[in-house]
Design a binder for these strands. Structure first.
Lengths: 211, 211
DNA sequence: TAGTGTAGAGAACGATCGTTCTCTTGGGAA
DNA sequence: TTCCCAAGAGAACGATCGTTCTCTACACTA
């Protein structure tokens, strides 16, 4: 039993160290710009162990994106949970979180959009993970705006419903803000997006709910 | 004189053929995925002429992005000019143009965002051209929404003015729609963005102009 | 203690990249 | 016709990539 635990933690530790190094280097400089040898050095792992854990580079890339998706969404959700007193504040808290992210010194845009622009045409796996990430974000946003729908019957309205439409619009603002902040380096894109989101949310909460 | 014309047209033709091939291949498959040799074959140009016209690959990449910026914005402006009867229709025509672009079979997202995700961390030139492209788009959008500002005095209000803010918001929707359409493959992102833009524009044109 | 197997270090391999060089060919000037 | 230069075709070069293989050293078992 103790042996198994040791092996397990040792294995997990190696996997984590590799993914940590991959996340830092891939996100910072791009995927194709980072070689497996540099990655091995950064992770402090032998080349044999590296290839034993991830049989090929594209497996590592996919694992990197999947773990980043989990962490990114968990971090967002934790912030929103902590900063949304009223239901109306929740969707706007998303943009406050974005601003803190944009201001981080290592911010370099959306890891998924970057990876998609780099490898989306070649690697099917990158396209799939990126799609799943964006869809999960939209689903999360729909959960946030659902309480704001004027009529409770809208909750099950489906694709044409107010919640789905508004969630889609907020998702566009988020992606736009991320790319704008990455290109210009100015975190203020989050506030611009927040102001737009406020107007869109107000349009739903008010009397005029027609779409 | 005739000689000079011949040389000039011949030279321009070579340059154009190279840029045509570069645009097709770089946009379709990514920049790093296309080698200079394949590019030479596609352009029907000798390797010597290729390097005589563009001393290095990054020069060709930058020229590709610059020409694409010109063509892209010219195509957008032509469509908006032709489809904006009233001043209020002009900003929305932008999103109609986006939808036709998204539906094109070779659509693969924003060439600049793709290039930035791939080389932005390495190449300063790519970052610069991308920044200029996005700034030019914002300036164009500001020109489109300026007539909608409720008070004429806002025209010279500067960064905090209604036109600048609204133009920035529309730019976020545009970038978001482009990436969403690229990732999901669904041109409907343009309509979602258009609906959001409509709401934002209405907020300015109506009585409530406070920001 | 002798034997065994596992893992680390890094050399090696084949492919491919951006770039340069060589060889050849063809057309215009004297 | 003879010379010469420009240009095309593609071989060659050095670097680097992802991936595999070899060699060594060490820990554990009988």
């Amino acid at each position: 039993m103790a042996d198994h635990d040791d092996v397990r933690t040792r294995t997990d530790d190696v996997r984590t160290r590799i993914l940590d190094a991959a996340e830092k280097l891939f996100y910072e400089r791009g995927i194709q710009a980072v070689g497996m040898d540099e990655l091995r050095t950064a992770a402090g792992v032998s080349l044999k162990r590296l290839y034993g854990t991830f049989p090929a580079k594209h497996d590592l890339v996919e694992a990197y994106l999947r773990r980043r998706d989990e962490h990114w969404r968990a971090s967002l959700a934790a912030y929103v949970d902590a900063h949304s007193g009223t239901p109306g504040a929740a969707p706007l808290a998303v943009f406050d979180w974005l601003e803190t992210w944009f201001a981080a010194p290592d911010f370099r845009g959306c890891a998924f959009i970057n990876a998609y622009g780099e490898l989306g045409a070649t690697s099917e796996g990158v396209g799939r993970v990126t799609r799943e990430h964006k869809l999960a974000l939209r689903t999360y946003l729909a959960d946030l705006v659902r309480p704001l729908a004027a009529t409770a019957s809208d909750e099950a309205a489906g694709p044409g419903g107010v919640t789905t439409v508004l969630a889609g619009q907020l998702a566009l603002l988020i992606d736009g803000a991320i790319t704008a902040a990455a290109v210009t380096g100015d975190p203020a894109a989050a506030r611009t997006a927040r102001a737009a989101a406020e107007a869109l949310v107000r349009g739903v909460g008010g009397g005029r709910t027609g779409v």
